[in-house]
Design a protein around this nucleic acid. Sequence first.
DNA 1: CGGATTCTTGACGAGAATCAAGAGTTGTGG
DNA 2: CCACAACTCTTGATTCTCGTCAAGAATCCG
Lengths: 235, 235
Amino acid sequence: MRRKNTGIIAALPRGLKSAFLDALPPFEIRALLKSANCIRVSPRQVLQQEGEPANRLWLLVTGRVSVYRLRRDGESLFLRWGMPGDAFGLATIVRAPARYLVTIEAVEEGSILAWDLAACEALVLRCPTLGKAVNWAVSKYLDNLIDIFGMCQLQTAEERLARVLVESAGQLGHSGPEGIEVGLKNEEIALAAHVTLFTATRHLSKWKRVGLLKKYRGRIVLPSLSPFQTIASDL
Amino acid sequence: MRRKNTGIIAALPRGLKSAFLDALPPFEIRALLKSANCIRVSPRQVLQQEGEPANRLWLLVTGRVSVYRLRRDGESLFLRWGMPGDAFGLATIVRAPARYLVTIEAVEEGSILAWDLAACEALVLRCPTLGKAVNWAVSKYLDNLIDIFGMCQLQTAEERLARVLVESAGQLGHSGPEGIEVGLKNEEIALAAHVTLFTATRHLSKWKRVGLLKKYRGRIVLPSLSPFQTIASDL
DNA sequence: CGGATTCTTGACGAGAATCAAGAGTTGTGG
DNA sequence: CCACAACTCTTGATTCTCGTCAAGAATCCG
């Protein structure tokens, strides 16, 4: 975990869209960036661990992270992917002296902007909007989780898979010659849909046979999303 | 929905334990109580509806409420019970101009203390701790939900039922001659465990046969919690 | 006593997890 | 450039949990 403190602005990719930052006025964004540490992260690196004291707020700039919770028996509960622009470690601000609620681990090579406890306290005083932005992020997280919970309780494996495809396409898909390309392995899709690798493969194969998608190793191409939106039907 | 504005203190039962209020200093509690409206609620009454503008914060004083989310297809996703002392409508404060995230409906006759939007704004200014208390409540809610999600994904129906019994005993159970009495119907237990009425009945019957519990109409008596804690095993 | 509510049990089936075995890719080093 | 290892994907057979449906018993209440 190497730190760089120079060229923060350069570290912020042009196209970075962050609902979190967008909630803040320009001068607060500048204040944030000024006191941020830019840190590179590598795959499998744990960025925060549930139960540990929450002492840093951070923003994913590039790469992808996996948010999950562990249980005593060693099983893990996948919650969601974190994409560039997403903010984490919100407990650091929201609940004063707190502990992280979830574990987050990098999936790909990437980089984050981080603020330690002292920086957070200073920022909260100087940026009146920051608290609101954090609250917003937390409640969106909550809203989202209720949704996923509903999906798992009330929809079939097939519907969940279709929905995961649609969402993944929106979040990490980019246009290619044959359609929207999504760089996910079957295993990752299965994880997000809360299905075993096998049921995921089965449905994906079926859709491939019918021509709804094309598959390559670690990559899926969707000519059109609408059939999957139809399958996922209800929210 | 009849309002009474007198005798607020009298309306607050002696034994009311509220993690929400306990997070506040005495003078802020007084300020809260002073501007509160006490409202009686009846079974099946909807206290807030998801999607509607969040314009009141409220505290359950007596009775029990059911928190759930509806889906387009009409199905509903039970989230949890609300017990006396629990605070709701937190979106009113946390996300400024917001909409309720969940629907809440009274299960029993009961009463609530409510604050409208104007009162909330005034209180936030006068009570510095209030914001923190609300944030705490929200994140506890989130923590809780992750937990329930995990329970539904990683535990069997039997384990979930056992866990629901243990938790219900703690929340709404009271000691009786034969053990802890829990005033829940099979249907409600099934709801909380995210199981059909039939599987719930089956396991409860089994436990009755083995002598782990006694059943009456709408009421269950648990001589001891430990066997159920064992069955629920992991968190 | 009737009627409504709540609980019980059984038979059946659908959905998805599990397990086993192998095929297809990709990358590496000799 | 080939051979090998590691990873990823595929398919089938099997099992099991739990939901669904039907029918009826027990309990409570006016």
